[in-house]
Simulated assay, not measured.
Amino acid sequence: MHSHTRPDPRLLQFIRALPKAELHLHIEGTLEPELMFELARRNGIELPYPTVEALRAAYRFDDLQSFLDLYYAGAGVLIQEADFYDMTMAYLRRAQRDGIVHAEIMFDPQTHTARGVPMETVFAGIGRALRDARDTLGVSGYLLLSFLRHLPEADAFSTLEQALPLRDRYQDIWMGIGLDSAEKGNPPEKFARVFARCRELGFRLVAHAGEEGPAAYVRDALDILRVERIDHGVRSEEDPDLMRRLAQEKVPLTVCPLSNLRLCVFPSLEDHNLARMLRQGLMVTVNSDDPAYFGGYLADNYLACAESLGLDEAELATLAGNSIRASFLPPEQKAQWLARLPATA
């Protein structure tokens, strides 16, 4: 995957000790094969794999679609509130070990409501885990409800209407709206009206752009959807004017290096543009995307980038600081975490 030398334990310790926010994480993408089997058994579902090992072997993908096929099949084991709770709690425990102090978690309600799982069940399981983690692990968390962009905008509107009655009950955690799934052929303007509605409602807005899609999708996400953060954004480099704008406006990019590697966005981690963008003054952050499927949680992503791109400790601390600054935390909480970073950040 990356260098076969043993990771430097001192460097890993340094990375884990940095207070970090994870801003680009799909909770359905944290479902490890062991838990998937356990939930399948609990719910009497037959998985198309005989063993955990066979399932893990299927986690090697040729492209985005082969990943999405398995991802949607895996989501099929999530039925009850307890399933969503167990999956979310497992992620949050790993997050705490990696030094994540705050996580902004994306979830795809359409993946679940389309299977007849009530919207309320999804919110209740994930929400209870976020509140428990805040109280017992010291990890805060927000929810970003994400629309699936391969479905029509009308579907996104009806998903929003189904979710809005729950807003009061989850106002401490449901902060934002996102846009994910297949980028190709699903440009930002397809969702202009629903994003305008979400902005009127006071939600914070983010969108996937410039992973498979062109740099123009990044610009359209900013200008048409008026998002505050770009999820991925690595193809912005194809447009020098856009790069200058991103640096000038300090638009956060939630970059997912090991995910990009697994889905062949870059041929190798050494070819990744994370370090170049960081050194050009862009507000780059590091994230794990779908860590169960892409071979690494947050600290793994930091470590792999440090090794493959020659990031020094000051740059790693800058990335951690960027993640706190780019989060939707209140200013006083940001200030508390930023004060705990090494002086270089």
Rank of each mutant, 00 (worst) to 15 (best):
H4V: 06
H4R: 07
I15T: 01
A17H: 12
K20A: 09
A21E: 06
I27P: 05
E38A: 15
R41N: 13
N43S: 13
Y49N: 03
P50G: 06
V52W: 05
A54L: 08
R56K: 12
Y59S: 07
L70M: 05
G74T: 05
G74C: 11
A90H: 11
Q96P: 01
R97M: 10
R97V: 08
R97Y: 06
A103V: 00
E104M: 02
F107K: 07
D108E: 14
A114T: 15
M119T: 10
A124E: 15
L130N: 00
D135C: 06
D135A: 15
L137S: 03
L145N: 06
R149S: 07
R149A: 05
H150R: 11
H150V: 12
P152G: 03
A156V: 07
L160K: 10
L160S: 11
L164F: 03
L166R: 04
Q171R: 11
D180V: 10
K184E: 14
G185T: 10
P188T: 05
P188G: 09
A192T: 02
A192Y: 09
R193G: 03
C198E: 07
R199Q: 13
R199P: 01
L201R: 04
G210C: 02
Y217P: 07
D223F: 00
G233I: 00
G233Y: 01
V234D: 01
S236H: 01
E237V: 10
D239Y: 02
D239L: 04
L242S: 06
M243F: 00
L246H: 00
E249P: 00
L253A: 02
P257V: 03
L258I: 03
L263P: 05
C264P: 02
F266Y: 15
E270D: 02
H272F: 05
R276L: 13
M277A: 05
L278W: 05
M283Y: 07
V286Q: 03
Y293V: 02
Y293K: 00
G296I: 00
L298V: 04
C305Q: 12
A306Y: 10
S308L: 05
L309D: 09
G310M: 13
E313Q: 15
G321P: 03
N322T: 06
S323A: 09
I324P: 03
Q333F: 14
A339S: 12
R340E: 14
R340P: 05
